[in-house]
Amino acid sequence: MGMGKKLSQIDRRIIFLVIGLAVALPLLFPIGLQIRVSEPAQRMYKAIDQLPPGSKVLISFDYDPTTMPELYPMNIALVRHCFAKDLKVIGMALWPTGVPLGEEAFEIAAKDYGKSYGQDYVNLGYKAGDIVLISNLGKSIPQQFPIDFRGTPLEELPIMKGVRSLKNIDLVIDLSAGFPGIVEWTMIAGGRHHVKVGGGCTAVSAPSYYPYLQSKQIVGLLGGMKGAAEYETLMNARGAAAGGMDAQSIAHLVIILFIFIGNLFMFLGNKGKA
């Protein structure tokens, strides 16, 4: 039993402490590293930027508080962009937990851009049904959401004038933490009703959505907190995501170091045996 073996059986709590500090310290003492924007984020930005003012954008808040650090900053940045371009934003959710998060993002962004509820944006709330619901929206939006999140009938909302189904929507933005999420929107809103779909997702699922990007089934993609930080950079508004990138950097380095050390022990151990 050499030192390698001993070190590899180190108390986990020491490792926990190291990673905790690797995240906390850069938050307390920021380094201010520069953020590079990736192509999928650039594409998402362009998809919104190109829409003429007054276009209708549907944002679905399909996430929950567990993924808030990743998706909430995206939510704010994307809504801000829509408001900056004078687009009409219709919010809804396939996850009940997403409604209040989307509502909060709406309120923050609306204050900054002087947008008013019912005129420039609306929150339709949550409805169960997953894929079935998306498909129904392709037939009729008011039938699925007779009233909005605040209880107002849709026909009384100016923003909903002329919006009957997904066909009248120019772009669907999905904030996706899993199922149902961007895959389902792509399959049904995109595949069947021919609406453009884009959005953001957790980093966990980002790699599996790249094939949709390559095949142009989705117009753009923000992956995880980094994706949110990229969008904040594009919007020139540093937010929580960009603020977390230093900690993210250091934590990644620590994990890489852990993997390296762990494998070094294995290598040395094997050599010893031979």
Binding site: S8, F16, V23, G262, N263, M266
Partner: peptide, 15 residues
């Protein structure tokens, strides 16, 4: 995040 860190150190091997 903590469990990933500890697994990185103790289990993820290029076997």
């Amino acid at each position: 995040a903590f469990f990933i860190a500890s697994a990185s150190y103790r289990a993820f091997r290029a076997r």
